[in-house]
Design a protein around this nucleic acid. Structure first.
Length: 836
RNA sequence: GCGGACGUGGCGGAACCGGUAGACGCCGGAGACUUAAAAUCUUCUGCCCCUCGGGGCGUGCGGGUUCGAGUCCCGCCGUCCGCACCA
């Protein structure tokens, strides 16, 4: 008798069975080939959202599939548990960040469990626990000892009301996002990690990441931003402030004879010196600092310059003196904070020179124009031959660059130089809810590392958030300690580490978690690198770059012999939903809307763009009630259907309904009475084997939507097939094929079919290659490239036989009207094209 | 501005290496079962002509290469993403 699959009962029962059997616990000592599947661990914000569900479903399918294909799979889960939201909650609701976070973790863990993910919960970790961050502190000290950590004064965004440092994203129109206070630039002593020391390695390493999306690789390359050129000094003509030279960096030393000015940043030391005695300079510098740094503002912002009266002497022609300007477009923190301007060959310089009537001199010919007078309306920055450049004339750009660098080095006034866009990583945060930086400041000894036997430096629990500022800093006792070096009274560092540090090595700790050290080298190396890492593109730059840096830094100090942490990377698309607005302009949630009307008031709703689910637009769908209603399998199936995983998936009621129907269809197929009739069905058997092969290939390539389509086709074919032994076999195999995607139903069906053990431990079905080849093929018959007929022929039929058959077809005979074709093209097993 | 991705029915999307465009799903139409509904099943469903045979058009637009182009080349248009005064 046909029954229905009841996810309410099945989900919980099988989740319990997997738990009790420790089915998904990864064994370090397994002889099987190892496979590490990892999704980016979540921030415990409160509840699981659809983005998590999609992300973890994809990883789960791959993890389960890898298990079926004979791998020992590590598929762990943990919590990126430090960060600002916990402190915000503490301030708003007077709860302790730790309680708030741990409560969220408990909630979200329960939610994840209800989706039946094949996770190794024995390795669960939370970055906010001393068992994790204590080891991070040890790594920090390792890096400190290895010279990879240093302390430097650095400007920060300071909110004077909240008395805290803000990230750039938290500064909106120059004001603190929370307090609304005008933000000050303050200089604070901060800790930095020397990521720039690895800039070249990180850049070169990108090339080797074959299983990363090109897009992400490119973003990393651009972020690292390598520029090669010449750094050199201009001598300055005698002047009142006693500056003798100004150093500039250029990627176009070849154009040196086209330079007509030097420009320095507003905060360049020379500008600062000039400002001391000049109100005019002070005013100009102030003006430069105004104006935002947003894209739109920069686009429209005028190039401003101030002629300092200083004159720079051209290194190759001492009779040539270039005016030195302070300019608002020169950045102090890139290169040397000073540039020389070549208006003919740089658009920005061109605009500046036009505005201040500076000479524009052509030194690179674009092929036909060689005249020094430059009359074009925009700069020419393409390739060409040097002209009007003395000894460089006739060289191409690359040769001229080399020549100038050689001469500069020989003359002792400059050097070939590589400049990076990448900055060292400032990791100090003036916050409570983060990893305490294990440093003690002593007046006599300076900053001293906390002795290893005193780790972890734990966060004090008794803190209050009713006053703005860093609770660690105003804690009555916590920071008062003795210097480990000289014993004098000293102060603890009260800054904590950027949470990106926490996520820079968690994947290593997952692979190996001894109590007494961050990880065991040999064990971690068995699992690493992560075979497949899955997460959102929003982490394409920072997290992935920091994790790559950390791994290389660990390799550098000999702790781990792995260069790249993530062998394969996949960035999945977002889950989106339509947005709705009431007539008064407020956003409406999907539950408030039915058939274009506001449920309560009957007002007409404006349907807006399809956007990423977000609380502010109210277009979120909470996964939990959906799981309640349809079960985990339907939700999982929907997450995999239709949209390619790298693209956005639009949540829809119809979509989840369709997924639910599919789950029940599979159940009905399996639930059918076994055949007693026997008999065979070769077509079905062939389709089955094509599907085994196809689904495996698709899952391996993360093309879940294609795998889903193939499974739909197979289910449809089984439904239509008359009872036979082949049909029974197909139904049984189907259960194996869908088991990575809808594992609860698969377990339930496995029992019903008399399968042994858990299907989670079953092997992926074998493909019979003989069944993948067809002995008959359909051949398209075209006339002048247009399809006119099809023929069914034995596979591998000879060309002349196919041609004869095509020409003999009724339709073709009619179309030919007795004419001879000019040409007949035959592609064996594919098509015939008759050209008239 | 620089860099990148993409553009296929009403919708999400398939289409290996240039070889039958629209698989599969959703929506929609018609029908079966039912007192009725739900569920389920059958069937149709790119557009336009047409007398049932069939014909024409069709992968953002305009060209080109080819026996043959969604796929390759050139030029446009549009959407999205990243970076951004980077010397």
């Amino acid at each position: 008798m046909a029954s229905r699959f009841n996810p309410l009962k099945a989900d919980a029962a099988w989740q319990k069975a997997w738990d009790e059997n420790r089915t998904f616990a990864a064994r370090d000592d397994s002889p099987k080939p190892k496979s590490y599947v990892l999704e980016m661990f979540p921030y415990p914000s409160g509840r699981i959202h659809m983005g998590h569900v999609r992300n973890y479903t994809m990883g789960d399918v791959l993890a389960r599939f890898r298990r079926m294909t004979g791998h020992e799979v590590l598929h762990p889960m943990g919590w990126d548990a430090f960060g600002m939201p916990a402190e915000n909650a503490a301030m708003e609701r007077n709860v302790h960040p730790g309680n708030w976070t741990r409560q969220n973790i408990a909630t979200m863990k329960a939610q994840l469990k209800r989706l039946g993910f094949a996770l190794d919960w024995t390795r669960e970790l939370a970055t906010c626990e001393p068992e994790y961050y204590g080891h991070e502190q040890a790594l920090f000290l390792d890096f400190l000892e290895a010279g990879l950590v240093y302390r430097k004064e650095s400007a920060v965004n300071w909110d004077p009301v909240d008395m805290t440092v803000l990230a750039n994203e938290q500064v909106i129109d120059g004001r603190g996002w929370r307090s609304g206070a005008l933000i000050e630039r303050r200089k604070l002593s901060q800790w930095f990690l020397k990521i720039t020391q690895f800039a070249d390695d990180l850049l070169r390493g990108v090339q080797g990441l074959e299983h990363w999306p090109d897009k992400v690789k490119l973003m990393q390359e651009n972020w690292i931003g390598k520029s090669q050129g010449l750094q050199f000094r201009f001598a300055l003509a005698a002047n009142e402030i006693g500056a003798s030279e100004v150093e500039v960096f250029t990627t176009r030393p070849d154009t040196i004879f086209g330079s007509s000015f030097v420009a320095i940043a507003a905060d360049h030391p020379i500008a600062q010196k000039l400002a001391v005695d000049s109100a005019e300079v002070q005013t100009f510098i102030e003006r430069c600092k105004q104006g935002g740094t947003t894209a739109a503002e920069l686009e429209t912002q005028e190039k401003l310059g101030f002629d300092t009266g200083l004159r720079a002497v051209h290194p190759f022609d001492s009779t040539l003196n270039l005016p030195v300007y302070i300019a608002n477009f020169v950045l102090m923190d890139y290169g040397t904070g000073a540039v020389f301007g070549v208006p003919a060959h740089d658009q920005r310089d061109f605009e500046f020179a036009t505005k201040y009537a500076l000479p524009i001199r052509r030194v690179v010919s674009d092929g036909d124009k060689t005249d020094p007078a430059f009359t074009d309306t925009e700069a020419y920055s393409g390739p060409g031959t040097l002209v009007n450049s003395h000894f460089l004339d006739g060289m191409d750009v690359a040769d001229a660059k080399r020549e100038v660098i050689t001469r500069a080095e020989a003359g002792g006034w400059g050097n070939g130089q590589t400049v990076w866009r990448l900055r060292d990583w400032g990791v100090s945060r003036q916050r409570y809810w983060g990893t305490p930086i294990p440093i003690i400041h002593c007046d006599a000894c300076g900053p001293v590392g906390v002795p290893r036997d005193q780790l972890p430096v734990t966060l004090p629990e008794d803190v209050s958030f009713d006053v703005p500022g860093n609770p660690l800093d105003r804690h009555p006792t916590w920071k008062h300690v003795d210097c480990p070096s000289c014993g004098a009274p000293a102060r603890r560092e009260t800054d904590t580490l950027d949470t990106f540090v926490d996520s820079s090595w968690y994947f290593i700790r997952f692979a190996s978690q001894p109590k007494d050290r961050p990880f065991d080298k040999a064990v971690a190396e068995q699992w690493l690198p992560v075979g497949q890492y899955i997460g959102g593109v929003e982490h394409a730059i920072l997290h992935l770059l920091y994790a790559r840096f950390f791994t290389r830094a660990l390799q550098h100090i000999g702790k781990l012999d792995v260069a790249e942490p993530f062998g394969g990377l996949f960035t999945q698309g977002m889950v989106t939903h339509e947005t709705y607005k009431a007539p008064d302009g407020r956003w409406l949630s999907p539950e408030e809307v039915r058939s274009g009307k506001v449920v309560e008031t009957g007002e007409t709703v404006t349907i807006g763009r399809i956007e990423k689910m977000s609380k502010s637009k109210k277009n979120t769908v909470d996964p939990e009630p959906i799981v309640d209603q349809y079960g985990a399998d339907a939700v999982r199936w929907f997450m995999l259907s239709d949209s390619p995983p790298e693209r956005d998936l639009e949540w829809s009621e119809n979509g989840i309904e369709g997924a639910w129907r599919f789950v029940q269809r599979v159940w009905r197929v399996v639930d059918a009475e076994p055949s007693v009739a026997g008999g065979e069905n070769l077509e079905l058997r062939k389709l089955l084997h094509r599907t085994i092969k196809g689904v495996a290939d698709d899952v391996e390539a993360l093309h879940f939507n294609k795998a889903v389509a193939k499974l739909f086709t197979l289910v449809g074919a089984i439904e239509k097939a008359a009872p036979s032994a082949d049909r029974d076999a197909a139904a049984r195999t189907l259960v194996l094929l869908v088991s990575p995607m809808i594992p609860h139903l698969a377990e339930e069906a496995w029992v019903r079919l008399g399968g042994e053990g858990l299907i989670a431990d079953a092997a992926w079905p074998e493909v019979n290659p003989a069944l993948l080849v067809d002995d008959e093929v359909t051949i398209a018959v075209q006339v002048n490239g247009k399809l006119r007929d099809t023929l069914v022929m034995p596979k591998g039929a000879a060309k002349d036989i196919i041609e004869a058959a095509a020409l003999a077809s009724d339709k073709i005979v009619r179309l030919l009207e007795g004419n001879m074709p000019k040409k007949v093209i035959v592609v064996p097993d594919r098509l015939v094209n008759i050209v008239l």
